[in-house]
């Protein structure tokens, strides 16, 4: 089944015709984004911006799978949260340096992505969503019961440590620089994947799977690879978040987190390059703002879901792309 093809028709047609000027525009946006990220910690609370960057990277990873692979995973919290646990455990109990701890979290997430992905790609469409949701729920219960995750308490007081054993990153600004570098590295990797021949095959599978099978492509293998890639980068985001908040908890493996990343991507624009970043900024800002009034995050998220699905399926960046007739 074709995942998001209905709304992507516009942006996707644009992507097929993506010209040199579009690439230049993307480069300009990247530069603008880099400048904004450089200035942001001096204007806003750095931890808030780091939270946005982690969520944005998480959503970018998710969008790689949904927007370009057409696979709606409703269990991405499993990768985000489990990587956070492993990273926190490695940093706190094993005393690894932050870059090694993040590497551990990301590697475990990739492995988990391989195992869960090989199971989930056996079914398509709506079943795929239900299977990923159920498998992630299994990971949730394992996290609840396992010893190393600390159960209801989670892993608290994770040390940020010294990068490569040399640079102290315990201050917010130092960690901010690291987070920003990780974010852009992940983002550029995803950009490269989308614009590679692999990315083209992926979109073709999303749009017409039977035809790609008859053309001789091993569709299952492509789906599994993109699933693992997506899980890996989601794990990178989760590991980084564990260091930022010095905490790994059940919240990050809960199904609500899986729903939140879907929401972020939907609001920003599925199948757009920059959508997840815009979505993350909007959703995190909205939640932070509303939390001050003690409003129910659940009702807010649900309402945004309903409004977006009914009236605003192309998302913020999708709408902008159509307005200016560019590919974003």
């Amino acid at each position: 089944m074709s995942g998001a093809s209905t709304t992507d028709a516009v942006t996707d047609a644009a992507l097929a015709r993506e010209t040199k000027s579009d690439r230049t525009l993307h480069a300009l946006i990247f530069v603008g984004l880099a400048m904004a990220v450089a200035i942001a910690p001096f204007l806003l609370y750095p931890v808030l911006v780091m939270k946005i960057l982690c969520f944005a990277l998480f959503a970018l990873a998710f969008n790689l799978l949904l927007g370009y692979g057409g696979l709606l995973s409703f269990g991405h919290a499993a990768f985000f949260g489990m990587a956070g646990y492993v990273c926190a455990y490695a940093a706190k109990v094993w005393g690894l340096t932050p870059e090694l701890a993040i590497l551990c979290g990301t590697a475990v997430s990739a492995l988990l992505g391989f195992v869960l992905g090989s199971l989930a790609i056996r079914r398509q469409g709506i079943y795929f969503a239900m299977i990923t949701l159920a498998l992630a729920q299994m990971i949730y219960f394992i996290s609840l019961q396992a010893k190393f995750t600390g159960g209801e308490d989670g892993i608290q007081g994770v040390p940020r440590g010294k990068l490569f054993g040399l640079l102290d990153i315990s201050s917010d600004l130092a960690l901010y620089a690291v987070t920003a570098v990780i974010f852009f590295a992940g983002f550029l990797a995803i950009y490269r994947i989308i614009h590679s021949p692999f990315g083209q095959v992926l979109r073709a599978i999303r749009d017409n799977e039977p035809r790609m099978i008859s053309l001789g492509y091993r569709v299952g293998r492509y789906k599994l690879i993109v699933f693992v890639l997506s899980a890996t980068i989601a794990g990178l985001a989760g590991s980084t978040k564990a260091l930022v908040f010095q905490l790994a908890s059940l919240t990050d493996v809960h199904w609500a987190m899986s729903g939140e990343v879907v929401l972020v991507t939907l609001v920003g624009g599925m199948g757009t390059v920059f959508g997840p970043v815009a979505g993350a900024a909007v959703i995190v800002a909205m939640e932070t703002y509303l939390a001050q009034f003690g409003a129910s995050v659940m009702i807010m998220q649900g309402s945004v879901f309903v409004v977006c699905v009914m009236l605003f399926r192309e998302g913020i960046v999708g709408r902008l792309a159509r307005l200016f007739r560019v590919s974003l």
Partner: peptide, 24 residues
């Protein structure tokens, strides 16, 4: 008329709203 995934997302949103209302 749209992809069935939208129905899934819509009803997910509705579930969140309902659960949130009864919770509060």
């Amino acid at each position: 008329r749209l992809d069935h995934l939208y129905g899934f997302l819509l009803t997910f949103g509705l579930a969140l709203i309902l659960q949130g209302i009864f919770q509060s």
